[in-house]
C-alpha cells in the first residue's frame, strides 16, 4: 500500500514538476534589456535630419539588443524613467538628444541624472562626466558646397538659404562663402534666413520657395539650402525654370529634384546615433566634447549622378576644405 502511494506520489510530482517548468517557460515576462531614449527635434518623415537619426536607431536595434523609447519633444517631465516620474517602468541607460535646440535642456538633465549617460548630437559645448556633446561641424562640407556652387554657376551669383539665425548654422554659412570665394572671389553670395530666430524656419517650404524665387529672379543660379524641410520649397522653385540649381542638405535629396539638385551636403547623424548606442552597450561610452566633420566622415558631399562630373573638380578641394574646417574650429575656440 505504501509502495503504491509512493508510486502515485512520484507520478504526480513528476507531472507537476513538468507543468511548473512549462508555466515558468511560457508565462510572458518583461524583458530586462538596457533602455535607450532618443529625443528628436521633430517628427519622422522630414526626409532629412530626424529620418537620419531614426535610421541609426533602427540599424542599432537590428544589430544590438536594447529597448528604446522615442520622443519628439524635450518635455522631459514626461520621460517615464527619470526621477520625478515614479510611474516610469524603466530607467534609461542612455538618452540621445538630437538637435542644437536641446543644448541647455540636455545639460540640465544630465546634471540632474548622474546615473544616466547622455549623447547630445549637434550640441557644441560643455560635454563632461555623463554627457557627451557631439558637435557635427558642417563647415568643411559647406566649403565644398561653396566650391561646387562656384564651379557650376554661370551667372557668378550664388545663394544660401538658412532655416534660422544660430551659432550652429554660422558654420554652414561661413564655410559656404569661403568655399565660393576660394574658387572665385568676385562671385556674389546672396544670403537669407527663412525665419530670424525660430526653428519654425526649418518647416516652412512656402516661405523658402518665396525666398528662392526672389534669388533666382535676381540672377542667382545655385542655392545651398540649409533649412531642413523648408528646402523642399526652394527645390520646387528651382524646377520652375531652366538653369536653376540646388545643393541639398542632411541626406541625399537628389530624388526630390533630379534635374535641379546638383549634390547634397549630408550629415551622418545615423552613424553618430549607431556608434553612440554601440559604445553605451559595450561599456566604452564616455562623456566629453566631440567635434566631427569632413575628416571623420560624418559629413560629406553626395552627388546627383546627373552632375557627378563635378566630383572631379570639387574633390580637388577636399584637403583645403578639411584644413579650413580645422582652422575654423581652432579660431572659434
Amino acid at each position: 500500500m505504501i509502495r503504491k502511494n509512493l508510486l502515485t506520489g512520484m507520478v504526480i510530482a513528476g507531472i507537476a514538476l513538468l507543468a511548473i517548468g512549462t508555466a515558468v517557460f511560457v508565462i510572458p515576462h518583461e524583458s530586462t534589456l538596457p533602455v535607450v531614449y532618443i529625443v528628436y527635434d521633430g517628427g519622422k518623415g522630414d526626409l532629412s535630419y530626424t529620418d537620419s537619426a531614426y535610421r541609426g536607431l533602427f540599424a542599432a536595434q537590428e544589430a544590438m539588443a536594447f529597448n528604446k523609447k522615442e520622443f519628439t519633444s524635450m518635455n522631459y517631465s514626461g520621460f517615464p524613467g527619470l526621477p520625478g516620474n515614479p510611474a516610469g517602468p524603466e530607467i534609461p541607460g542612455l538618452i540621445i538628444t538630437v538637435g542644437y535646440d536641446y543644448t541647455a535642456d540636455t545639460e540640465r538633465l544630465a546634471a540632474e541624472n548622474p546615473g544616466v549617460q547622455f549623447l547630445a548630437i549637434d550640441q557644441a559645448g560643455s560635454g563632461a562626466g555623463n554627457l557627451r556633446s557631439y558637435e557635427i561641424t558642417s563647415y568643411g562640407v559647406s566649403y565644398l558646397a561653396g566650391v561646387l556652387a562656384a564651379s557650376a554657376s554661370k551667372t557668378h551669383r550664388v545663394g544660401i538659404i538658412l532655416g534660422t539665425q544660430s551659432e550652429l548654422l554660422e558654420g554652414f554659412r561661413l564655410g559656404y562663402i569661403t568655399g565660393v570665394h576660394a574658387v572665385n572671389a568676385s562671385i556674389t553670395v546672396d544670403q537669407a534666413y527663412v525665419r530670424d530666430n525660430t526653428t519654425a524656419g526649418f518647416s516652412d517650404p512656402d516661405r523658402a520657395a518665396g525666398i528662392a524665387g526672389g534669388m533666382y529672379g535676381n540672377g542667382t543660379d545655385v542655392i545651398y539650402t540649409v533649412a531642413g524641410y523648408s528646402g523642399t520649397g526652394a527645390i520646387a522653385e528651382a524646377k520652375k525654370g531652366p538653369g536653376r540649381y540646388i545643393i541639398g542638405i542632411d541626406s541625399d535629396q537628389t530624388y526630390l529634384g533630379p534635374s535641379v539638385v546638383l549634390a547634397s551636403a549630408i550629415k551622418r547623424v545615423d552613424r553618430v546615433v549607431y556608434s553612440g548606442i554601440g559604445e553605451y552597450l559595450n561599456g566604452t561610452f564616455t562623456g566629453g566634447s566631440t567635434v566631427a566633420g569632413l575628416r571623420e566622415g560624418i559629413t560629406g558631399l553626395t552627388y546627383n549622378p546627373e552632375f557627378a562630373a563635378y566630383n572631379t573638380t570639387v574633390s580637388a578641394w577636399e584637403a583645403s576644405a578639411e584644413a579650413e574646417e580645422a582652422r575654423y574650429l581652432a579660431t572659434r575656440k
Binding site: K44, G45, Y54, R55, A59, E62
Partner: peptide, 12 residues
C-alpha cells in the same frame, strides 16, 4: 512618413 516604416524598410 511619421511612422518611420519607409526609412526602416529601406535600411533593412
Amino acid at each position: 512618413p511619421s511612422t518611420g516604416f519607409s526609412v526602416a524598410y529601406q535600411e533593412k
